[in-house]
Every structure is written in C-alpha cells, then in structure tokens.
Design a protein around this nucleic acid. Structure first.
Length: 817
RNA sequence: GCCGGGAUGGCGGAACUGGUAGACGCGCCGGACUCAAAAUCCGGUGGGGUUAAACCCGUGCGAGUUCGAUUCUCGCUCCCGGCACCA
C-alpha cells in the first residue's frame, strides 16, 4: 500500500521548508544574472478573489521557472493600501480605515502564503505607511521646485450631501451613488503633475518596447494622441486680439467658410453679455456637456455670434459661431471650419445653412461632390489659388512657411493627453505636502519636516474629509515666513503610490532616500504581470514616474517594465466574476477542499494566460484527479526500490521510445513556459508523458530506469506550477535536495534521435497512407516506398503523376496526379 | 465611426514556419470492481457511412493564391475589448 495524497499535510510541509530556509529571500549579488518578476500589487479589499489567484499564479510560475534556469529571482509582494473602500467600510462599520486596512492585509497575506507563492516577504511594501509615502511627498516637493507640478482650477463632480468629490464612476444618472443627491459641477483648485512634458518620450519609447503586447501599446498611443498641425490666428473685426486656432489640415485653409468656438471661449462669453438668447444657449451647453457618453451622436447645435473673422489669405469675412462640438479643453477652444472636408463641420454647415466649399479633390482626379458629404481623405489641393496642385505635405509646408513669415502662426503639436490631476478631496490617502500662507502662497513642506503624517485615529461622519475638521492637522506655520498658515487637506490620487512601488521593493527599508544603490541591481522589472484594465492609466503613470526618478538622478532606467503580460479575466457562466453578479467562487473554499496545488493547476491549465478563463467546477475536479494519479505513479515506482539511471546503449526500442518522449517533453515544456507562456500546453505535455509512461509498464531493469527518468523529469517540469506536491515527490524519489534549488532539466538531443520515422503520404493533398522508413532514407527511396503503398496506388490508379513533393523533414510526401 | 482581438466537437482548448485538424482535460456512453453507491481502473467518443474497413463531409460565410489553407489574400457576418465631436 502506498501513501494517500493528502494535500493539506504535503503543502504544509513544503511551506514550512521554504519559510524555515528563507528560500525566497534574496540579496543583491553583483555579477549574477537577476530576474525581477512582479505582479501588480493588490488592493487589500478583505480576501483574495479568483482574479488575484490567477495573476499571482502566472507570475509565480514564471519566477520559479526562471529560478530553476539559474537566475537570481526577486518576487516581492505588497499592498496598494490607500483608497475609497476603506473609507466606505469606516462609514458603514465604524472601523477606522487604517485598522480595517491592516486587518485585511494580515488576512490576505495568510492566503497568499497558503497558496505557496515564492515571495520575499522581507521586502513587503504597504503604501499607507508613512515610511513609504514620505518619499512621494518628497518627490512632489522636488517637482514643485522644478515646476513640474502646478495648481489650477478644475471641475469636479461634487456631492452636496456627502460634501465630497465623486469619481466619474460614482455618478449614476447624474446622482451621487450613495447619497442619490444631484451632482453639481464645481470648480476647485487642484494639483497637477506635468505628464505632458514627457508626452513625446512616453510615445516614442513605445516603438522599442518589444516585450509589451501590441494592443497595450496601441491603447497608450491613442491615449497620448499626438497630432501635428499648425496654430494660426485669424484677425477678428472689432477685436484687438486675433482668434487663434489649431488645425491638422492647413491644406484645406481656403475651404474655411465659418469659424466655431466653444461655449466657454472668451469671445462667446463676451458676445453673450448683450444677448440673452445666446447667454441661455451657452448655459445649456454647459449642462449637457456633463453627459459625455452621448457626445458622438449629439446633435450639432450652435448660434452665430454676430462677429466676423478675416480669412488670413483671401481677406474674406468669415462668420463666427459658437458650437457645442468644440471643446474648450483641446487646442485653443476654437476651430476653423472646413465643411467640405470634415465630418462635423459638414454636419454643422448643413444644419445651419452655411456654405460648403471644395478645396481638395481625390488623388486619382475623380469627381467628388461635397454637397453629398465631406471628402475627408488627403488629396490634391484645388480652388485655392497658388496652392492648387499641391499634395497634403506640400500644402502643409507652404502654409506653415507663410504663417511663420507673417508672424501669424507656427507649426505645433497637440496631445489628447492631459496633465495628471493628483488632488483627491479624500481622507484615506497620502497628504499633499503643501502649506498655504497668506503672504508666501503655496509653499512645499521642507524635506526635514516630512513626512506629513496622515492621522490614523479619526472620527468618520460620512460627510466631507475628517481632515477638514482637525485643526491639529491643518493648523501650522509657514516654512518660509513662520506666519500662521494652513496645511493642504487634500490627499494624493492612489495612482501616485502605485507609480513607483516597484522601485521601492528593491530597497524598502531605505530610510535616507527614496531609492538607493540596490535599485540599480534589480531594476528594470523583467516580467510584469497584471490586468488589462491598467493598460493605460497605471502603466502610463508608472512610466512617467520612472522618467521623473531618472531625471532626478534616482535611477538610470528609462522604462520600468521590460516584458508585460496581461492576463485575462476569470469568468463564470460567461460573465466576469463579481460580487454584484453573485457569480463568485471563493478561492479559500477551494484551497480548503483540494489544496493550493489543485487550484494552481486548474488555473494554469484551463486557458492560456492572456485569454479569459471560464470557471469550471468539473475542471477543478479533473486537476485534482491528475495530481492523485501523478502522486500514485511516483509512489508506486518508488515503493519498488531505487533503480538505476538509463544506459542509452542497452535499451530496447520501446524503452528508447519512452525515453524519447521524456526528452521531447522537456523541450516542449521549456519552450512553452520560457518563451510562449502557454502554461496550458506545457501541462498537457506532461500529462501526455505520464499517460505514455502508464502504457509503457516495463518492470525490467532498463524499463525501470527509463520510467524513473520520466518521473524525475515530470516532477521538475511541474515544480513551478504545483510546487508543494513536487517538493514531496522529489523526496519520495530518494533525493535529499529540493526542487526549488534544482536546475531545470535539459533535453538530450541524442535521446530524441529516431532510427525509423513515419511519413504520411498524400495524394492531391489528402492523406491516403503512411509509410515507415529509416530516418536517413533519401528522397528517392521515400518516393518509391510512398508509391508502393496500396491505398496510395488505388488513388493514383492510372492517372499520370504530375509531380511528387517529398519533404523528409516535414515527414510528408504529396503525390500530385 | 475608428483601432485592436477573436469565431475550431456537447464544453474549455491544441495544431508555434502553409504540411496527419481536434493534442490535453471536462462531459457523455459502455465495461470492470462493489450488496449498492462514491472513488478508482479499462475501452469508446466531430458528423455521415460500414459487420469491420474503405470512403465522403467538416475549423463563422463567400471567393482567391497554392501540390497542399484552421493558418496567407480579398469581400462579408457575428462576438469581445479599447477609444470616441481631439479640430
């Protein structure tokens, strides 16, 4: 009788070994190749969900595989600990956010340990601790000095009942998600980080980031939204100031038939002063702009301002309109309208009876009628005087040169990307280290006064930020003039913490600097794994911070994440698992029932990592069943005694076949895990190996040696995925070492050589027969044998053979008749 | 609307460079063990066809390139994700 597979004891034993031996704690070792393997750190919401288990397992498999490759692997873990759920819990349950957060962290840390992830817990980072956030406060004050942060008024969603600012997602049908109060748009001063100063580098580097998925790069490119054009000014009759517009299509300049400005534009505001209908229209625009979702389909509304601009080339009068499709926040808040060659301008012109002029014709010279719709594509300039006949680029250059010469415009680049507003009118976040003095204005907190500590013992009423009711927090003195002053009570957006935590893992205990020399050893992150939902914001902000830290001399790394893997969602019944849908599966119950290895195995086997994973209770059963068979196979083999290592010289053909399968599996699994990240096919390959071994059933001395090799290989190949069971089975096979310290097996090419190969024979591309030939048979012999096959001959019959394609390396012959 | 990804058995998925479609797992069917059930083990499992084979059909739809197409090209349909009045 062999021992039963009892995951609980097996897993506990492995965990204790790793903990006692500090298996995953690493120090810098200059000269040794490092591998920094990281997942996006979790928010400590209370307990792990399946999405966590999936992403952490993927990363752990990669980390353990790289370790067995001989790399010096760092895999840390930490907590994105600031955020709104802690405040909600405080309001609902009366627990202070800090306490709630730390309790959750303790529980979830235990869950992560139970899952067997190989983390270096000595490097744990918790972002709500002052020793962490003090450094982003410090960096902020440095950015202040370099004018990379600034304060300006901007509009927020204000909940008048809860006295708080709401994120867009918290506004439901124009009402606060909790208070149900009508949300107001308020303009309040907020701090911004100048990410736009790095827009070009953030965009250009993407071209060289080969380790990132194409779709993430595309999303970032679109988000940054660089467009090249010309900023030029139109004189306005009766105004001293000209009207400046940005256009990417200066080649259509002679097609301008009107101009349009945003409702908030000064010219519109001015014109509305003496016109109540216009004023009412502007008010209307402001309201409707809140509902941004329907922008695209929104009717093109507008009113004439009764003012004319002067066309800079023709000198014609061009009427000025206010239009709801012009955005104050992009470009100059005003556009030159070319209805003949722009969709929106065309629709607007149609609606309001404005003229449409054609100034571009298709490149092939074909007829185009702009009265039926705009010609938006690039073409040849027509009806434009001396510009006629030019293509897009020539016309662009000609207009740019002329505007620059006349001092009425210049080439310019605009971005869709906006500066990053980091102020949050929230309690549970890192305080923004600024002091407001009546005389000195906004003054950064000096380095020796940092950190500005967030008080953790607070009363939560649910209305407004508690900091605003804490004079002991906000009453202070000006660092410059020592006069009475008040502290900023806003806190940082939590994306600030997650923008640099990956660097802090390299030196989490550094008390005298944000980062120290250890950063240079570990950074950049070699493998970063996380959800696609962070494709834009987190990954863009983190890249931005990396450049800031580089430019402050804290790092020499340009890009923080060399390879990025974005894992798919975990679905059940075709929908994403979520509490709201009530279709969640609690990982803890599964771990308790089957053990961590079964959960890990199922997660990795059910789908490739980037794809959505459909949850299946039966699939979990199947994973458990496989582990039991695996356990049983090793135990029975070991129970029969130790046995020797195979001697290649004295093996029978079936033993050679078995041994070939073993080494083919090594090659396949190495490629699947190391290069392709297709863990599902890697597992399938090991399953095949064990199935083959089961059929092999050879108890001779040579047979046992071959079987033993196969089992040892299987244990090592599965060790990254199901580390606990492999830890034990490695001992069962008689080793006094442990898999985490073993080197990854290497496929023996001599074992993979085949004396006889099977070749498939096709007739006209359809499979008609198989032949066995010596591996070194020449094409002629293969061809002859193929044509002798009975079934092949039946299909050739008396038809003449036109061609015979013989591909020994593909193991294929195709006879064309 | 634009950009990106996808569609393969009853289900999850495999086929990596154009070369044996459906690996591996789940489910299902049959059998063994059992008083019985569970667990476990053995066999089968794309559709049609055959005693068995041969064979025919088959990778969303329609064309094309090729000796050969799930894979490449063109045109559609549907699904998923992102962006969306960006001048």
């Amino acid at each position: 009788m062999t021992e039963q597979y009892e995951p609980e004891t097996v897993e506990q034993e492995a965990r204790e070994y790793w903990a006692t031996n500090r298996s995953f704690e690493v120090e810098e070792e200059t000269g040794r190749e490092k591998f920094y393997c990281l997942t996006m750190f979790p928010y400590p919401s209370g307990q792990l969900h399946m999405g966590h288990v999936r992403v952490f397992t993927i990363n752990d498999v990669i980390a353990r595989y790289q370790r067995m490759q001989g790399k010096h692997v760092l895999q840390p873990m930490g907590w994105d600990a600031f955020g709104m759920p802690a405040e909600n819990a405080a309001i609902q349950r009366g627990v202070p956010p800090a306490k709630w957060t730390y309790q959750n962290i303790d529980y979830m840390r235990g869950q992560l340990q139970r899952l067997g992830y190989g983390y270096d817990w000595t490097r744990e980072v918790t972002t709500c601790r002052p020793e962490y956030y003090r450094w982003e406060q410090w960096l902020f004050t440095k950015l202040f000095e370099k004018r990379l942060v600034y304060r300006k008024n901007s509009i927020v969603n204000w909940d008048p009942v809860d006295q708080t600012v709401l994120a867009n997602e918290q506004v439901i049908d124009g009402r606060g998600w909790r208070s149900d109060a009508l949300v107001e748009r308020r303009e309040i001063p907020q701090w911004f980080m100048k990410i736009t100063a790095y827009a070009d580098e953030l965009l250009d580097n993407l071209d060289h980031m080969d380790g990132w998925p194409e779709r993430v790069k595309t999303m970032q490119r679109n988000w940054i939204g660089r467009s090249e054009g010309i900023e030029l000014s139109f004189d306005v009759a009766g105004e001293s100031e000209p009207l400046s517009v940005f256009t990417t299509r200066p080649d259509t300049l002679m097609g301008v038939t009107y101009m349009a400005v945003a409702a908030e534009h000064p010219l519109a505001q001015k014109a509305a002063a003496g016109d109540t209908r216009l004023a009412a229209f502007l008010e209307d625009c402001k309201k409707t702009q809140a509902a941004e979702a329907s922008m695209e389909t929104m009717e093109k509304k507008g009113m004439p301002l009764g003012i004319d601009a002067i066309h800079p080339i023709s000198g014609d009068k061009v009427p000025l309109w206010v239009a709801n499709f012009v955005l104050m926040g992009y470009g100059t808040g005003a556009v030159m309208a070319v209805p003949g060659h722009d969709q929106r301008d065309w629709e607007f012109a149609r609606k309001h009876g404005l003229p449409v002029r054609q100034v571009i014709e298709p490149l092939d010279g074909s007829e185009f009628d702009v009265s039926t719709g705009p010609l938006v594509d690039y073409g040849t300039v027509v009806n434009s005087g001396e510009l006629d006949g030019l293509d897009f680029q020539q016309a662009f250059d000609a207009i740019a040169a002329r505007c620059e010469a006349e001092g009425r415009g210049r080439r310019s680049v605009h971005y869709r990307l906006r500066d990053w507003g980091v102020s949050r009118q929230r309690y549970w976040g890192a305080p923004i280290p600024i002091i407001y003095c009546d005389d000195c204005g906004a003054v950064p907190v000096p380095a020796h006064d940092l950190p500005v500590i967030l008080p953790e013992d607070v009363e939560f009423s649910g209305v407004g930020s508690p900091l605003k009711n804490m004079p002991e927090f906000y009453e202070t003195t000006c660092p410059k003039c020592a006069a009475k002053a008040v502290r900023e009570t806003d806190t940082f957006d939590t994306f600030v913490e997650s923008s640099w935590y990956f660097s802090r893992y390299t030196c989490p205990d550094s008390a005298h600097a944000m980062l120290d020399e250890r950063e240079a050893y570990w950074m950049p992150v070699d493998q970063y794994t996380g959800g696609i939902e962070h494709a834009i914001l987190h990954l863009l902000y983190a890249r931005f911070f990396q450049k800031l830290m580089r430019d402050f001399g804290l790092s020499s790394v340009d890009e923080p994440f060399t390879n990025l893997l974005t894992q798919g969602m975990v679905l059940k019944d075709g929908a994403k698992m979520s509490k709201a849908k009530g279709n969640t599966v609690d990982p803890q119950q599964l771990i308790d029932g089957y053990g961590a290895d079964t959960v890990r195995l199922f997660m990795m086997f059910a789908a490739p990592p980037e794809q959505a994973l459909e949850w299946s209770d039966d699939g979990v059963q199947g994973a458990f069943r496989f582990l039991k068979r695996f356990w049983h196979a090793v135990q029975t083999h070991a129970a029969d005694g130790k046995g020797s290592w195979p001697d290649p010289q004295s093996l029978t053909d079936t033993q050679k076949d078995m041994r070939r399968k073993t080494h083919q599996t090594i090659a396949k699994v190495s490629d699947d895990i190391g290069r392709r990240y297709t863990f599902n096919t890697a597992i399938a390959a090991v399953m095949e190996l064990l199935n083959a071994l089961h059929r092999f059933d050879d108890t001779s001395q040579g047979g046992r040696a071959v079987a033993r090799e196969a089992l040892e290989v299987a244990v090592l190949l599965l060790a990254p995925i199901v580390p606990h069971i492999c830890h034990r089975l490695w001992q069962v096979l008689g080793h006094n070492t442990v898999p985490v310290d073993q080197r990854w097996p290497v496929a023996d090419s001599s074992a993979m050589i085949q004396d006889v190969i099977e070749i498939v024979v096709q007739v006209n591309g359809k499979l008609r027969g198989r032949i066995s030939v010596a591996a070194d048979a020449d094409k002629e012999l293969i061809s002859t044998l193929a044509l002798e096959d009975e079934n092949v001959r039946r299909f050739i019959a008396d038809k003449p053979i036109r061609k015979t394609i013989v591909l020994p390396e593909r193991r294929l012959v195709n006879v064309v008749v």
